[in-house]
């Protein structure tokens, strides 16, 4: 990321969400992005995920400038390289766990089998259940399986534990950590919850649209050891 700036609106009502952010993410790293509401962390994720365009600056992904891509090229970027995990899971209610994952594996080039992805998040026995028949944690794990089944280069998780209790949240984080370790997927987690920072290689602290602090953890804590 070079000089990433984002301004919403214009004139007196303009809001500067990002004020020139320069950052680099190494392949395979797990990054946790902390910060209060309005600090710009979601804006970063939206731009990196190809959902939004910066007002100024560039985003380089494996030598390609994302800011130079048009809408359909961004769709292709998301389709081939990006996995998303949402706070509210966003599963398709009318598809079973297996089918929700198949939704993505059907359109990706080098995808796993749906059951393989679901096995990675520990859901082998819930393959043919509909979202309504799964708990919140199980739904989020299906969402993670859906996100990683296509073996994405990067995985973006927006408040993945935000709607879950701590015990379930830890199970979800375990799954994310395992994917990062076993598949080498570069992972970016946005959260309000500072405890989660322990599982990261790098922790970015955002405030007022700028990077306030960047810390490299000497040791990564296993998700199972987190408590909140």
């Amino acid at each position: 990321m070079e000089g990433l700036t984002k301004i919403y609106g214009a004139g007196v009502s303009a809001v500067q969400a990002l004020r020139g952010v320069d950052l680099e993410i190494r392949s395979g790293e797990l990054i946790v992005l902390l910060g209060p509401s309005g600090s710009g962390k979601s804006t970063i994720l939206n731009i990196l995920g190809g959902l939004d365009e910066p007002t100024a600056g560039h985003v380089w992904f494996e030598g390609q400038d994302l800011t130079a891509l048009d809408g359909s090229a961004l769709t292709e970027y998301r389709r081939q390289h990006v996995g998303f995990v949402f706070q509210f899971y966003n599963l398709v209610a009318s598809l079973t766990a297996r089918e929700n994952v198949a939704l993505i594996t059907d359109i990706a080039d080098d995808a796993m089998m749906p059951q393989e992805a679901l096995a990675m998040v520990g859901l082998t026995d819930r393959l043919d259940h509909f979202p309504a028949q799964l708990s919140g944690g199980e739904q989020q794990r299906v969402a993670i399986a859906r996100a990683i089944a296509k073996r994405p280069r990067v995985l973006f998780c927006d408040e993945p534990t935000g709607a879950l209790d701590s015990q379930t949240g830890i199970m979800v984080l375990e799954a994310i950590q395992r994917i990062n370790r076993e598949l080498g997927t570069t992972t970016l987690i946005i959260t309000h919850n500072a405890v989660i920072a322990g599982i990261a290689d790098v922790v970015w602290q955002f405030a007022d649209g700028m990077l306030a602090q960047s810390t490299r953890n000497p040791v990564r804590v296993a998700a199972s050891e987190l408590r909140w």
């Binding site: 995920g49 959902l51 359909s72 769709t75 292709e76 998301r78 389709r79 081939q80 990006v82 998303f84 949402f86 966003n90 398709v92 939704l103 993505i104 359109i107 859906r146 996100a147």
Partner: peptide
């Protein structure tokens, strides 16, 4: 959601 996940229009 599908669009975010990479589905084309």
């Amino acid at each position: 959601s599908l669009r975010v996940l990479g589905f084309r229009t």
